[in-house]
Design a protein around this nucleic acid. Sequence first.
RNA 1: GGGUGAUUAGCUCAGUUGGCUAGAGCAUCUCGUUUACACCGAGAGGGUCGGGGGUUCGAGUCCCUCAUCACCCACCA
Length: 857
Amino acid sequence: MVAMNLPKVYEPKEYETDIYDLWEKSGTFEPNSAHKAYTIVMPPPNANANLHIGYALTAALEDIPTRYHRMLGERTLLLPGADHAGFETQAVYEKQLAKKGKSRFDFSREELYSQLYDFVATNRHNFESQFRKLGISCDWTRFTFTLDDKIVTRAYKTFKQLWEDGLVYRGERLVNFCTFHGTAFADIEVEYKEAKTSLWYIRYPLTDGSGEVIVATTRPETMLGDTGVAVHPDDKRYTQYIGRTVRLPLTGREVPIIADAFVDTSFGTGAVKLTPAHDQNDYDAAERHSLPKISIINHEGKLTDEVPESYRGLTVVEAREAVVHDLEKGGHLEKTEDLTHNVGHCYKCGTVIEPLLREQWFVDMQPLAKPAIAALKANKITFYPAAKREQLIGYLENLRDWNISRQIAWGIPIPAFQNVDQPDDWIFDDRVDQEIIEIDGKTYHRDPDVFDTWFSSSSWPYATLGIDSPDFKHHYPLSLMETGGEILYPWVSRMIMLGLYVTGDIPFQEVYIHGYVMAADGAKMSKSIGNVVDPMPVIEQYGSDALRMGIVAGRSPAVNRGYDPRRVEEARNFCNKLWNIARYIEDRLGDSYTHAPEARPKTTAEHWILTKLQHITEVMGGHLDSYRFSEAYDTLYHFVWDDVADWYIEASKSEKGSGVLGHVLEGVLKLAHPFAPFVTETIWQTLAWTGDTILAVQSWPQPTKADAKQAQAFEEIKAIVTEVRGLVHSLELDKPTLYYTDAPFIATNSALITRLTNIARTREVSDGNGLHLTSTTYQCWLDVDAGVAVAHVERLETQKAEQQSLVAQYEKRLSNDSYVRQAPKQIVEQTRQRLAEAKTMIERLQAEQQRFTSLAE
RNA sequence: GGGUGAUUAGCUCAGUUGGCUAGAGCAUCUCGUUUACACCGAGAGGGUCGGGGGUUCGAGUCCCUCAUCACCCACCA
C-alpha cells in the first residue's frame, strides 16, 4: 500500500495563511473575466474595531456567492472597505484622551481630525489581517476607506448637485444641546437617567372666561414658551374645548387648544402644554398644526428675551423656581405630584441636555424618494427576504426631510460657507481646509458641521468603483448588497435614492438582509454582559472553514439566531471528512493518475455517483442562485458524507480503482469550495494531477454522462444492503450467508454486497431457505437459526402495520372524489403509485410472515 | 404604543411557490475497531409542527385570533 501523503487529521492552521497568500499574490481575487459581472461592494466595517463573530457570518454571506460566481466564470469582484465610523470612533479615541486628562474640547477640529486619522490608520492593519483569516475573497487592490479622497469628493459633488437642484435647504430643528460644552450631540450620545422630579398641574384659563384647562408638566419653566395646548381627539373630557383658546398665566399669551393623537389620555390630565422650541413631541405637533416656535432658552442655558423681563437671563433651574413661585402666588398651580422619569444628560459632563432649535442642512426627500418607490414597486430590486421590499416602500412613502448636519469633528466637513455680514447668504465651496474665505470682498465662514455619515455612504456603491472608471462600466449596478436589517432604512434606502439621483440607475439588483449572531442563549452579545464570542480563537481551534459553515448552517435571512458551537464542531468534522476522502482517493489513484476531462464510468456505483453529482450540482446551483446558503450547505454536506463517503467510496473498496474517483473528488472539491475554501484549496494543491492551477478559479462542475439504468441498479443494491444490515442488527445475526436463486445480478455484485453488509458470503442455491428479503424483487434469503423466528415475525408485523396505515391513508385520499378531480394529476398519480407500492410490500411481508412462521415451526 | 420576527424531536434549528409517510446536527440507546477518517462506521428510539378558529380535495406552509418570547422604533409632557 502506498503511504498516505497527508496526515490523518486536517490541521487548518498549518495551511490557511499560506493558502490565503497564494490566492492574494496570484491575483485570484481580481476581476479579469470577459463574461458578465458579478459584484458585491462590502458594507464597510468599522476600521477601528476588532471583528466580532457577526463578521464571520457577513464574510461568509458575501464570500460564498462571490466564489460561486467566480467559478461560473463571471467577472467577479468583491470590493473591500472600512468605515471611519464617525461618532463611535471618536468616542473610543476620547476615552484615550481622557486617560491623559484631555478632552476633545481641548483641540481644534483640524487637530482632532488628524489625530483620529492616525489613530485609525494604526488599528486598520489588525482589522485587515482578521478579514484575511476569514478567507474572504475580496480584491484588496481596490480597498476603500470611507474618508478616502474619492469618497469625500463624491460627497461634495453630490451635495453640490443637490444644492444646484434646489434640494438642500437650511432649516431649524431641535438638537440635543449640552449647554456646558456648547455643542449639540447625536441622539445616541445622550445618556438617559432616571430622575426624581415633580409633576406640576397648572391651570390655564379659557380666554372666554368660561372655565379652565389643567395641564401637567415636569418642566413648568417652559410654559413661558408655550404656543398651544393639545388634547386627544377622542378624549370626551375635552371635546368641547378643541378649537378654543386659553390665556397663559405670567405671559398673558393667547394660545389655541388643538387635538392630536399623540396625546396619552391616561397621563396627567390628558391635556398637554406645547413648547415646540424645547421638546421634540411638541415640535412635531406644532409642525402638524402650524403653531409658532418660541425659543426661550439660549445656547448657554439661560432664558432669552422672549420671556417677560423678570425671567430674562435666569438659568433653567432658577427660572423653574421663579415660575413655580409666581404660578402659586397667582393661584395657577393646582397641585404637585412626585414623579420619576428619564432625563437626557450629557454623557461627558452630566449636564441635562436641552433640546434647542438650531439651523441645520436638510435634504428635500420627496423628489428623491419618488423614483426609488417607483423602482421598488416595479420589482427592479430583489430582496431576501422578500418582505423587506414592502417595508422599505412603506418607509419611503412616509419619509421626512433628512437632516445631514452633524456636530462632531470626525467626519467629512460640509462644503458650505456663510457670509458673516448676511446670515442668509450661503455659498457652496469645497475649500473646506479653510475656516474663512474671501470672495468679491465678502467674508465667508465655513459651516463648522460635518455630514451625517449616511450622507457620504449613500454613494458607496458607485463612489467605491469611481463613476468615471472602467470599473463603473463593468460593475455598476452591483449584483448584491448584503447588510443588516438595522440599516435598511438609514442606508439601503438612501443608496437607492441617491443611486438613482446621481447615476440614473439602481445601485444594486439584489439585497440580502442578514440576521444577527446572538449569544448561545439567544441574548444579544454585548461587551458589558461579557457574552461576546471572539471569532479568532474559534478559527485557531476549528479552522476558518468550520467557523464559516458552522455559522451559516441553519440560518435564514433576517432571522437572529444564537451562536451554536456544536455546528462549528460539526463543520470541523466535515472538513476532516473532505480531507480523508481526498487521502483515500489520492492513495487509490496513485501518482500516475492524470486528469481526464471525461469520466468513463464502468460500475453501477460509478454511474450512480456521477448521476448524483450532476443532480447535486443542479440543486446547489438553484439554492445558491437564490441565496439559500443554509440549504446549499445542507445539500453539499449530505452529498459528500452520505453519497460519496458512505456509499460510493465504500463501494469502490471492492472494485478496481478508476478515474471516476478522481473525477468525483474534483467535483466534490469544487462544490465545497465556496463553503470550505481553505481545506478544498489545500487538498487541490496536494493533488499531483492539478499542477500549478488554483481551485478558486476552476469552473463549476460540468454535466457528466452516466447511465440511468446502471444508476438505478445501484439503488437496488443499496436497498438490499440496507435491509440486510437492519436484519443482521435487529436479529443479532452473526455473519450470515446470503442465498439467492436465479439472480445473476446478485452474483455479479456479490463482492460489493458482501463488503457493504459485512456478511460471510453470497451463495446461489436451487431452493430458498431462511429469511426472505422483502425490499427487492430478487429472490434472496439470509440463513438463520430457528431461534430468531419470534423476533423476526414481530419485526415483520411492525413493518406490515406501518405499510397498512399508509394504505389506509392513500385509499382514503383516493376515495375522495374532490381530491381525484381537483388535485394535479401528477400528485394523484403519485398517490396511486405509492398505494400500489405499499400493497406490494404488504403482500411480500405477509408471504414472508406465513412462510417463515411455517418454516420455523 | 407602533413595527418586525419567532414558537417544529431532550437541545440548536432546517422545511423555497400549500401535495409530508415532517428532516438535520448534537444528545440518548444498541452494535462495531472491515487498513480514508473514532473529528469514524452500522442500526434504533424520540414530534397531535404554541392554543383555538377558518380557507382548501389537501395546511408545518395561507388567513383570523389568543398566548409567550425576542428585536427595532417611538414615548415617559
